[in-house]
């Protein structure tokens, strides 16, 4: 019996010890974790490591996961040229640990990103170039990272894609945008049946006192509206097949979704109150801002606001006229071209 136990133990050890050495190759496909403040945060690295350029992708949500962004033209083109680090934020995706509610804060996630950046340099060398790309909520988190201490100087550039650096501003601008575009659409008798209840709801909102529940409903309407607009191009990109996504990916969409919806209420309320506009002037590194003109989740007014407030001498704003909240999906070609041009300029 004891012999059997020893054999099992040794077999398990042998399986665990099969780790490859860290090497920068043209087709990297590896994962590692960072353990910080009681959370184990996964990082999945795909793409061309020989470029020594790493793009860290901060996913949306809160409640999403990094690998749900690994599809389509932009991901393929980025991975051909650079290494992309798809990471899950604490209490989201495949990140795990024994956590308390008070350990789930925006600042804790900023510290996680900081530790990940340092880890990437240790793992792949101090001579690598690092870019941070945040989409949607990832833009909020990325902005919070950029304005904290001197963290931004560890990066070569910051890319904000339809990010939400000021949620109270977002809610007010979203009400304005829905009313403006909605009334135009109704006047043109386009999707009137769908627009009328949305306009009724939004008209009743007091923009001086938008409640937590109302922000949730506005967000849901925002996604719905993008599907109504013919000016927003639909995705033609191939995505993960469902089978691969659910059963063969390093991520686990079932578990990720369940974890994401359990984010503590206090954290969600903190996010809703996050306003970084007055600190964006602290950002001095090269910045690319990419936005969909018809983003009804995070209106382009926030993109203009970010562009106006950031102090960087090298800052660029790109608005995509046929895109909603995800220009990498709606207009992948110009989106990808702008992204690569920016990275090439500052890598």
């Amino acid at each position: 019996m004891k012999k059997i136990q020893i054999i099992i133990f040794m077999s398990v050890l042998a399986l665990f010890s099969c780790q490859k050495e860290v090497a920068l190759t043209e087709q990297m496909e590896e994962s590692f974790y960072v353990r910080t403040n009681n959370a184990d945060i996964p990082a999945y690295v795909y793409g061309n490591g020989t470029s020594k350029v790493f793009v860290i992708l901060l996913h949306g949500g809160p409640g999403g996961n990094g690998l749900e962004y690994r599809f389509g033209t932009y991901a393929e083109e980025l991975e051909k040229r650079y290494a992309v680090v798809y990471t899950d934020q604490r209490h989201q995706g495949g990140a795990h640990g024994h956590l308390k509610d008070e350990e789930i804060t925006v600042d804790a996630m900023v510290e996680d990103v900081h530790f990940l950046v340092q880890t990437l340099k240790q793992r792949y060398g101090n001579d690598i170039s690092l870019f941070l790309l945040g989409h949607s909520w990832g833009g909020t988190l990325g902005s919070a990272y950029m304005v904290k201490a001197d963290y931004q100087h560890e990066l070569n550039g910051w890319i904000e894609v339809d990010g939400a650096h000021d949620i109270p501003m977002l809610n007010i601008e979203l009400v304005k945008m829905i009313l403006t575009i909605g009334n135009i659409e109704v006047a043109a008798d386009r999707n009137t049946d769908e627009w009328v209840p949305i306009l009724d709801y939004v008209n009743a909102i007091d923009t001086n006192n938008i409640t937590f529940d109302q922000t949730g409903q506005l967000n849901a309407y925002g996604h719905e509206i993008e599907d109504l607009l013919t000016t927003v191009y639909k995705s033609t990109d191939t995505t993960f097949s469902s089978f691969d996504n659910y059963f063969r990916s390093p991520s686990n969409p079932f578990s990720s979704a369940i974890t994401g919806v359990q984010l503590p209420q206090a954290f969600l309320e903190e996010v809703e109150a996050t306003s970084l506009t007055n600190q964006l002037n602290l950002i001095t590194i090269p910045t690319l801002i990419q936005w969909g003109e018809y983003d009804f989740v995070v209106p382009p007014a926030l993109g203009y606001s970010a562009f106006d407030h950031i102090s960087s001498t090298n800052k660029f704003l790109k608005i995509y006229s046929h895109s909603g909240h995800s220009p990498m999906v709606n207009e992948p070609d110009p989106f990808t071209a702008d992204l690569i041009a920016f990275i090439e300029l500052f890598k």
Binding site: Q19, F32, Y33, V34, F115, Q122, P250
Partner: peptide, 11 residues
């Protein structure tokens, strides 16, 4: 017991 894939980096 959930063993993280690859290396885990700790501070």
């Amino acid at each position: 017991s959930q063993f993280n894939a690859g290396t885990t980096y700790v501070e």
